[in-house]
Amino acid sequence: MLTGRAWTFGDHVDSDAIIAARYLVHNDSHLWAKHVLEDLRPEFAGQVGFGDFIVAGRNFGCGSAREQAPLALKAAGVGAVIAVSFARLFFRNAFNMGLLIFECPQAARAVHDHDRLDLDPYSGLIRDLDQDNTFQAQPVDPYLARLVSQGGLLRKVARELQDSYKG
């Protein structure tokens, strides 16, 4: 069970807003964590708690295909992103980088900023503890859940390679 507070955002949060290109020259996810989403909510990076949720509107992660966007969210401690919909390449990159994401238009519309949420990653059930309300997100596909639990795509491939050398 994931537990944390909600941080709400609007539609079309693009990858530049998640982590601005000016920080990409440094290949340092801790630095990105300090600046994540700073152009939209400057207080977010300093106040986000481990396991907190991003709750956003349509087309979250649109714009460039940069993999640093989900990495920056993960490094900041974000437990999962809940949105109406995700940009196609953000969807891929999130699972490849080991970040859980959930499509749930009902929750995305109803949850207020700073509401306390529970999220069961297996069933996709979201509970808003402050509103005493529940929402059903599409459960994560088992293949993608395994990808996240293995630490993302490159770690999965690295482990398979090690196993093949042993075998």
């Binding site: 295909a65 390449l89 891929r92 980088m97 293949y143 990808l147 993302g152 795509l153 398979e160 390679l161």
Partner: peptide, 20 residues
């Protein structure tokens, strides 16, 4: 399909990729 750089790196090794 256009994908991320990690997808391509993984496919270079395994010849495989995941798709929705």
């Amino acid at each position: 399909v256009g994908v991320g750089s990690s997808d391509v790196a993984a496919a270079l090794i395994t010849g495989r990729a995941w798709f929705k």
